[in-house]
Design a protein around this nucleic acid. Sequence first.
DNA 1: ACCAATATTTGCAATTTGCAAGCAATGAAG
DNA 2: CTTCATTGCTTGCAAATTGCAAATATTGGT
Lengths: 165, 165
Amino acid sequence: MANSAASPATATVSGTDADQVLAACRLLVSISVRSANAVEDEVTLPQLRMLVAIASHGPTTLSALAAATGQHLSNASRACDRMVASGWVTRNEHPADRRRLQISLTPAGRRIVTKVSDARRRMIMPILRRMPASGRVQLVAALTEFAEAGGEPTAADLWSLGWTT
Amino acid sequence: MANSAASPATATVSGTDADQVLAACRLLVSISVRSANAVEDEVTLPQLRMLVAIASHGPTTLSALAAATGQHLSNASRACDRMVASGWVTRNEHPADRRRLQISLTPAGRRIVTKVSDARRRMIMPILRRMPASGRVQLVAALTEFAEAGGEPTAADLWSLGWTT
DNA sequence: ACCAATATTTGCAATTTGCAAGCAATGAAG
DNA sequence: CTTCATTGCTTGCAAATTGCAAATATTGGT
């Protein structure tokens, strides 16, 4: 992989640069996936995504939840049924509009979400510890810059993979 | 674990650092999700994962494919049926062992995979262009360092999200 | 009161997932 | 050569997910 694009002087970006970024990010993606395994026996992955979405939003309507997780409304409705049955969420009437539902996490549901984010953090930190301190500072700065250049990803995009916040 | 870096200020890693890394990576994750949409009308996401796995491995057996995508053998078998029917892959006898299958991409199947990686690259590059050139260099360097500190993620982890390379 | 828009539910069909049982081909004894 | 465990895959079964289309109920505007 001969990369000539490491020249700070040039304003052009090679496709190799993009590949580098994608390749280096695989680790972070795998962390996301593996952290989901922490609760895989308790909820399915789609259910986890819904729980995470509710945890981020606070009590939500079904439509908002479906949009956030990229599901169809019908699926969200039935998935919600199952999660109510499992005891992860409650489904109440919205006080102002009787058409809407207020879907909230139960303590058990919140425990699931916490478990996943903790697992994620526990996987990130030892890696950061193995990095030289200067690299750590650079990494955070560069990633922040990258994120700013890329703008805010759609919430639905994030939640659909189970990312917390 | 000889931690104790030379830098006096940042010898320890806070949970906030980990959060920063996770937060900054959301953009990259969203790119992964959105790139899958490029072919969403042609194949389902699980099917895409299988196609990507075959593209990485070359012609594979069904067991290897199932392991790579984290599926059960039975699911891989039937998913393979559908993809043969759709024309994305071929299923032939293994020359040496008649128990095994040789599953390969058809040109159409390869086109799907290419479409996704291209979409991914096309989304990364404009973001890199908006970054200052120095930041670009830093980003790649820091990510590489991070990836090295974290080690190679399992292939199954990557494929399960549809990452190409 | 009527009608359009919103929020959710339900029926239907295809796909995915996991588990368990079964069948065919291989390789290693005896 | 025959038995037998192993390997690789297929099939049956049940639950969950997904998307689409057609109800149903509630709200808000005219």
